[in-house]
């Protein structure tokens, strides 16, 4: 059986005023290839301004349900403090949106980062939490934008509104009723 390589979670920023949002995951032998795969899988259409990938094994996830039953006294702490990225799922409505980037905390372990995240960003109305050490995240560079994401802008035929079939059918209908 072939190995499909480790899983990387993918975060996509689609507009300047939007945070990075989790889009799904890809498999890759390293972070560089994960970024390439993420581009191919998730950026066939505009707009993408930036992509992040992080090994799934580095992400500590908790749903509101899990958080309710979590024993914080058992949180282990590592020796050194480092920055962690915090992500939240904030709504049950917008079906396309899962966890979005909300900020950073300093912590000595994944679990400690989670407890700091809940303290700092509040747990009301949050359905899922993710924390991930900042060092585990690989980001597309500003200089990559034109090579990686611009090509999707020049393919209007990928958009449904490129095809005027609704107007066409309306015209056929009105001719038929004449």
């Amino acid at each position: 059986m072939d190995t499909q390589w480790p899983r990387y979670e993918v975060f996509e920023k689609e507009r300047p005023d939007w945070p990075h949002r989790n889009a799904g995951s890809v498999h890759a032998p390293d972070a560089e290839m994960a970024l390439e795969n993420a581009r191919d899988v998730f950026v066939r259409r505009p707009h993408c301004l930036s992509l992040w990938v992080a090994p799934a094994s580095e992400i500590f996830s908790m749903t509101a349900e899990q958080l309710a039953g979590f024993d914080w006294r058992s949180v282990p702490a590592g020796p050194d403090s480092e920055p962690y990225l915090v992500f939240q799922k904030q709504t049950q409505r917008a079906a396309e949106t899962f966890v979005v980037h909300v900020g950073e905390v300093e912590a000595r372990s994944h679990a400690e980062a989670m407890s700091h995240a809940v303290e700092k960003f509040g747990s009301g109305g949050v359905f899922v939490w993710w924390v991930c050490p900042a060092r585990a995240v690989t980001r597309s560079e500003e200089s990559d934008v034109s090579a990686m994401f611009a090509p999707s802008e020049s393919k209007p035929y990928r958009q449904p509104h490129f095809y005027k079939v609704i107007a066409q059918l309306r015209e056929i209908k009105s001719k038929a009723s004449e």
Binding site: S61, T63, E65, Q66, K89, Q92, A95, F127, V128
Partner: peptide, 9 residues
């Protein structure tokens, strides 16, 4: 109408 997410029972 809640969504079940990975990690939920």
């Amino acid at each position: 109408g809640e969504k079940i997410e990975p990690g939920d029972w």
